[in-house]
Simulated scan of single mutants.
Amino acid sequence: MSVTHPRARVAIIGTGGIAHAHAEALRDLSDKAEIVAVADVDEARARDFAERFGAAGIYTDAAALFDAESLDLVHICTPPQSHVPLALLAQRAGVPALVEKPIALSLSELDVLVASEATTGVPVLTVFQHRYGEAAQRLRRIADSGALGRPQVATCETLWYRPAEYFDVPWRGRWEVEGGGPTMGHGIHQFDLMLAILGPWSKVTAFAARQSRPTDTEDVSVALAEFDNGALATVVNSVVSPRETSRLRFDYEYATVEVEHLYGYSDRDWTFTPAPGHEHLAELWRAEGTEVSGHRMQIEAILDALVAGERPGVDIHDSRRTLEFAAATYASAFRGTPIRAGEIGEDDAFSQSMDGGVVPWARLKGAAA
């Protein structure tokens, strides 16, 4: 599917906080795209957003938007519970959709989109912008060349802080609306990048807890992952960590490559350390970029792919692998057993929902009642 207009005609559904990041990115890409319409159940908010970003069409109903507008791409920036229904609407309208994470609340829900894409041929993409930063792209190229040797150890940490008041928003911290806690809504960006670098995972052993936040979901999870290539990784997702940081470290046979940032990185946040005797590998890194990883990089790559008639990323199958890692984290934590890739079948409770119906503190709450 290719873009048929000189500039891509784009709409944004949902005009809350994250939609502004999308709109600012599209403004920076105004030679390639224009925001022609917005939709939000809050008409006043939609109107203010449209005026700010120059969109002519204003709708309070997504179906009406698709009926009235000729679009090349739609950005879905609504709460997670609505992602799949809106993406299905876009597919039926023949419009590729870029969906904020998490793309779906469960594997079974995501598989509805997979089936719809197979039928309609209309792609649904997930926002995983950290894959598109210059350093991540460079690392993938160098690692894929074999110059760094085999990956052996990795560390993936999303140590963030969200006060109790953060969860006053009705859809936050609820399994049925948000899909999960920091594993689904926060750390997923970091471990998606880890998976993009290391490739297929084979087994996960995990723990999850509700340490102190007023949520139904976890506020911390910790996982140990094994990969098909033999690498081992630790993954920590937290919203109770006062000193906030996001950190990824990859230890290859011949070098360590790591990044520490918070919500976006540039080359200056990365370090490259060759192993003794392999100092010449530093010449391959040459990190000089200044742009911070963000929505603009991924959106530009999507627009370019649509124009070229190529398959844009991050596609539905990549998204499913990342979502399956989240599901395996929960399944292992709540069942107390390792989970292998592919083990969560369509009839499994953890395919139907990320809590699997066996969250320990939910049972305790029910017993107390």
Rank of each mutant, 00 (worst) to 15 (best):
I58R: 13
A97D: 04
W361E: 08
L71I: 03
G149P: 07
Q129R: 11
A104F: 09
M354T: 10
G336R: 04
E134W: 06
V204E: 06
A154D: 03
L26D: 02
T60N: 07
E176D: 12
L110S: 03
Y330V: 15
L195G: 10
L65G: 03
Y263G: 14
E226Y: 03
E117C: 09
E24S: 12
V84S: 01
H317T: 11
V169P: 06
P96G: 04
L306A: 06
R131Y: 13
R131G: 13
T215A: 11
F167L: 09
L195W: 11
D347L: 09
A37E: 07
T322W: 11
I18Y: 05
H75P: 06
V153G: 05
G199L: 07
G309H: 05
A64F: 00
F272S: 07
E24T: 15
H261P: 13
A23W: 02
G277L: 05
A231D: 09
D42V: 06
E34K: 11
R296Q: 08
R174V: 15
E291F: 04
Q91P: 15
Y166I: 14
L113Y: 01
G230F: 10
D228Q: 14
S82A: 14
E69R: 13
P85T: 05
I339Q: 03
E346H: 14
G309K: 04
S246P: 12
A19W: 02
G54D: 02
L26Q: 06
L65D: 08
I316A: 00
A282L: 15
A44F: 05
R363H: 13
D72T: 01
Q211G: 09
T119K: 06
R45W: 04
F350Q: 02
E324G: 09
R172G: 08
Y132P: 14
S319L: 06
T245A: 12
Y161K: 11
V236Y: 03
E178M: 13
G54N: 05
E291D: 12
R311G: 06
P123C: 01
